[in-house]
């Protein structure tokens, strides 16, 4: 968002004020003419009405309601009671589990997102070539992303990394004695991270699309100048790909912050052992629906919203310094 405003600012500075004004008038006239031609008036809004109803009833109203609830004591069963900022104060000052969940979530985001993107880019580069049956390979690598969010996969994961699971069988081939990875507070979160990284398909497909659009002539020129593969990757591919990287980073960070299902299934809804897999959304759910503190859960939802918005804004600002736009 801030990116686009910055750009229009530049345009305005460069162009004479009068020209841009007449430009605007011209555009306005065109728009009106088009509107008249198409029947204009209220008709578009009539057709858009179902969407507006959905937006108001399913998005705006619940959002505002949860904002209100976040300032109340609400147990779902009796009417909410206004308590001011008590929920927010309790969250930051008195609730150690909240901080456990923040810790678990930040660790999860900080480790899973870079690993996932690195893997996605690596595999995308391997798959960006003309081979027989390349489509099949691409589909095969995308498959985990289709399955990964499912409850069934999380259940399998719990089995694989359990004390008598497949992973320990595998380790035993090399004479390594494994442990119960899911039930140890030091390793449980990494099984969740591994599950997230395994689902690298979506960013991979996006990277692949980006790679296909890179201009060939630059690579030819670089090859003639004697640039090796590493140089080509770091000096050409990566810089040209930064808009795509940026897009993926934003998307994956947001996704990672919201992760719920695998943590819920793998820890049996407990976020354990010792809150080590108590991801933020899971704690929010637990507070709201198990402990019947829906006001508190609403406050948590708003804090998460603000944190995600903050991360995204920081990303957009930072992107000015590392994202290279071609145009």
């Amino acid at each position: 968002m801030s990116m686009t405003t910055a750009k229009t600012d530049e345009v305005v500075k460069e162009a004479p004020a009068a020209a841009s004004l007449s430009d605007q008038r011209e555009r306005e006239r065109m728009r009106r003419r088009l509107a008249r031609k198409r029947g204009g008036g209220w008709w578009p809004y009539v057709f858009l009405a179902p969407w507006f109803v959905g937006l108001a009833g399913l998005t705006i109203y619940p959002m505002l309601d949860s904002l209100y609830l976040s300032f109340t004591d609400f147990d779902l069963l009796t009417p909410p009671e206004w308590v001011g900022t008590k929920n927010y104060e309790h969250m930051f000052a008195e609730d150690p589990v909240f901080w456990d969940s923040v810790h678990a979530t930040l660790l999860y985001v900080a480790v899973s997102v870079p690993l996932k993107l690195a893997l996605a880019l690596g595999v995308a580069m391997l798959l960006n070539r003309d081979l027989k049956g390349i489509g099949l390979y691409r589909a095969a690598f995308y498959l985990p992303s289709l399955l990964g969010g499912a409850v069934a996969v999380a259940i399998v994961w719990r089995q694989v990394f359990g004390g008598d699971g497949l992973f320990n069988d595998f380790l035993s081939w090399f004479g390594i004695k494994g442990q119960d990875w899911i039930s140890s507070p030091d390793t449980a979160i990494y099984t969740l991270i591994l599950l997230a990284v395994w689902q690298f398909g979506t960013p991979m497909v996006i990277f692949l699309a980006g790679l296909k659009q890179l201009p060939r002539d630059v690579y030819e020129a670089a090859a003639i100048d004697g640039a090796g593969p590493a140089t080509r990757f770091f000096k050409i591919t990566l810089p040209l790909l930064t808009p795509i990287v940026f897009f993926n980073v934003i998307l994956q960070i947001i996704d990672a912050f919201k992760t719920f299902t695998p943590a819920f299934v793998i820890s049996n809804g407990s976020g354990g052992p010792l809150n080590s897999t108590m991801l933020y959304s899971l704690y929010l759910y637990k507070k709201g629906f198990t402990d019947l503190e829906m006001g508190y859960a609403s406050a948590m939802a708003w804090v998460l919203f603000l944190v995600i918005a903050g991360f995204t804004a920081v990303n957009f600002i930072a992107s000015r310094y590392w994202v290279h736009y071609d145009d």
Binding site: M63, S66, L69, K258, S281, A301, I308
Partner: peptide, 17 residues
């Protein structure tokens, strides 16, 4: 995102992801 996140709270179907 906010829509999803908030809606979860409002709707009670967080598990449905």
């Amino acid at each position: 995102i906010s829509r999803r996140t908030i809606f979860r709270t409002a709707s009670g179907l967080a598990a449905a992801g």
